[in-house]
Simulated assay, not measured.
Amino acid sequence: MPDGAAPVLDVQNLKTVFRVRGGEVHAVNSVSFDLRPGELLGVVGESGSGKSVTMMSLLGLLPSPPAEVREGTVMLGDRNLLTMGAEDMRNVRGGEVGFVFQDPMTSLNPVFNVGFQIMEPLRVHMGLTRRKARDRAVELLEIVGIPDARRRLKDYPHQFSGGMRQRVMIAIALACDPKVLIADEPTTALDVTIQAQILELVKDLRQKLGMAIIWITHDLGVIAGIADRVLVMYGGQVAEQGPVRELFANPAHPYTRALLQTMPKLHGTRDDKLRVIEGQPPMLGAHPTACPFRDRCPHAMEICARENPQRRPLGGNHDVACHWDHREAAL
């Protein structure tokens, strides 16, 4: 990642609300982050923390209604994605920004062969002829490690294993040489061996192609192995962000610390129990006016119940949204 390089993606004060019967759900609350060329940003948090909704908000992938991006800017270079018209946004999706969804079986269309599904963005976004699109589709399948690629273009999604379907999804996302690749928990449904293969594939592709990647996951072990920087989300907002080594070595938010403590240890005894985070995630029915983690936090103070903490810098591109001073206690 080039030092001092301008962000390829810059998100500021993003707010997304779902209108539901009886009120609103504030799913994303003032989320800000950037992504630099060639960087891999890991986004972690429990289910319901706002990870996927945040990333889908960037590209207008949420149904409207009930979803509404109420505030913020999403700058891709010098263009604000949130003010783009429908046609311009279609050109960005699959063109400049690729998206790999969580479940390849439901993301791939079962009635079209994979060749058609890879060739379609090539013809729409890059204007390639059928022959050139086919040749490029073969090349993409070879890049993601699918053997006998030309023959397999004619196969349908059900004829591929789970890991191979995920490779097809990555090939589709890479088809138009995107500046940014967003991967939404792409290995969650895969077994550990196939998951490791996909992670190695992404590392290799990132090195070869130099694209910036946002990797959404609940697995801190995955993030430790592939990310440059980590964004920890809780209750629809950013709890902490920083370089991966710094954040793992010196977590500042009680939630980050709790997540790290739930990870299984390599060295231990059979009697050691897995740690859990007590309590339940917050209800997001109103705009937050207090810290969303306060009811589960061992360090909660009076101010936490009346003031939502703002992110404050800790140095070295590391910041945290917390009233508690983490230097008061060791992990």
Rank of each mutant, 00 (worst) to 15 (best):
E139F: 09
F160G: 04
H158W: 06
V144D: 05
E139M: 07
A149R: 13
T188R: 10
E96D: 11
N113G: 00
D155T: 06
A171C: 10
F99C: 01
P121K: 06
V138F: 09
D204M: 11
Q195R: 12
T83Q: 11
V100K: 13
R90Q: 10
D78S: 14
A196T: 05
H158L: 10
K179S: 12
I170A: 04
R152T: 08
V114K: 01
D78M: 07
S107Y: 06
R165Q: 14
V144P: 09
T129Y: 04
K154V: 00
G94R: 06
A189S: 15
G145V: 03
Q166K: 02
E96F: 00
A171T: 13
A67I: 09
N113H: 15
R136Y: 02
F116I: 13
A137Q: 08
G77E: 07
S107H: 06
R93V: 05
L199R: 05
T188N: 11
L153Q: 02
A196H: 09
I143L: 15
A175I: 05
R70V: 15
A189Y: 02
I172M: 15
V111C: 10
L128N: 01
D103Q: 09
M169F: 05
A175E: 01
A196V: 01
Q197A: 04
P157C: 13
I194D: 08
R90S: 03
G95A: 02
L201E: 02
R123F: 08
A137K: 04
I198A: 01
N91M: 10
K179P: 08
V144Y: 07
M105H: 13
V74N: 04
L82N: 03
V97I: 15
G98C: 07
I143G: 11
F99I: 07
T73K: 14
L181H: 00
L199S: 11
P178N: 01
G77I: 03
I172K: 08
A189N: 12
H158C: 08
D177Y: 05
T73G: 01
G163N: 09
L122F: 04
R131W: 15
E96R: 13
I194T: 09
V114Y: 02
L199W: 10
H158Y: 11
E185W: 03
V100G: 11
N80L: 04
I194C: 02
I118R: 00
C176P: 03
P157Y: 13
T73H: 14
E96I: 01
L140S: 12
G127K: 09
R131L: 14
L205T: 02
R131Y: 14
E185F: 15
N109M: 04
E71A: 15
S64W: 00
P147R: 12
A173P: 05
R152I: 06
P110G: 12
A67G: 14
G115P: 12
V202P: 00
R93L: 06
P121A: 10
R131D: 15
E96T: 04
I194H: 07
A149K: 12
G163M: 07
A196W: 08
D78K: 11
A173E: 11
R167E: 07
F160D: 01
R151S: 15
L190S: 08
E87D: 13
G163T: 00
G98I: 03
H158P: 09
G145H: 11
